[in-house]
């Protein structure tokens, strides 16, 4: 069995310039005074993870430990400062749902817009349009501008568009917490469906129950470093008991 994702020696360094240097004048002044030292911040250091095909892999850790950053690196949104990520197959990232939604437009228009942002073709969106709307259960709101939607309704539309493809690798960042409990169940069912089709899943969640229920293996990240990788039960139990 080959690997779906290979993360080797990945580090991510962010600039945390206390005062942002974004003009040429400031840049020159700082340059000549030799003050151009960015406060560097290592969001991730030396991460090595291999995710096998068909595996459901979880990432856990406290707020700000670097989980979302790692998912964005895997999805190609960020380039790691050092190290490499090898991905075999297509990715559907459910990281920030509804990217590019224009709230002045109707749900119908936004489905096309957000679909195109995700790289879908017009023809593909047309084919899947009814399926997307069915999943949101928002038929009567489809031609209403989205500024009149509740945040849960917006999330439904975002989730429905993002999960309409059958990707090889699904990346999920805490989005299962959106919507009411009925919709949460529906989302989890959808993800289960995708998983049963042999899709590899990498999932971040603060719900340890959910991680235990869904994942085969889990990595526990602490302050940008891997604290532990192993079977879901084992890692989760240590994580919850380490207070």
């Amino acid at each position: 069995m080959s690997n779906a994702v290979e993360i080797s020696n990945v580090s991510m360094r962010f600039n945390m310039a206390k005062e942002k240097v974004d003009s040429i004048k400031e840049y020159l002044i700082k340059f000549f005074k030799r003050q151009l030292l960015f406060e560097e911040f290592m969001a991730l250091s030396d991460i090595n993870i291999t995710v096998q095909k068909g595996e459901v892999f979880g990432l856990i850790g406290l707020n700000g430990c670097g989980k979302s950053t790692l998912l964005k690196i895997i999805s190609g949104i960020y380039k790691p400062s050092t190290g490499t990520v090898k991905v075999n197959g297509t990715i559907a990232p459910l990281i920030e749902l509804g990217a590019g939604f224009d709230m002045d437009l109707t749900a119908r228009e936004n489905i096309y817009l957000n679909g195109s942002v995700l790289g879908y073709s017009k023809q593909y969106i047309e084919e899947k349009f009814d399926e997307i709307v069915d999943f949101t259960e928002l038929h009567q709101f489809i031609d209403v501008p989205m500024k009149n939607f509740s945040s849960g309704m917006v999330a439904r539309v975002g989730f429905a568009i993002a999960t309409i493809t059958k990707p090889d690798i699904l990346i999920v960042d805490e989005i299962l917490a959106v919507g009411d409990f009925l919709f949460q169940e529906k989302c989890e069912k959808r993800i289960n469906e995708l998983m049963s089709g042999g899709t590899t899943v990498i999932i971040v969640s603060h719900s340890i129950d959910q991680i235990k229920r869904l994942c085969d293996r889990v990595a526990w990240i602490e302050k940008g470093k891997i604290k532990m990788i192993g079977a879901a039960e084992e890692v989760c139990d240590l994580y919850t008991s380490a207070k």
Binding site: I77, P93, I95, A99, G100, V117, L118
Partner: peptide, 9 residues
Amino acid sequence: APLIKKVYI
């Protein structure tokens, strides 16, 4: 920027 930080384009 908001888009570039959220999805790959």
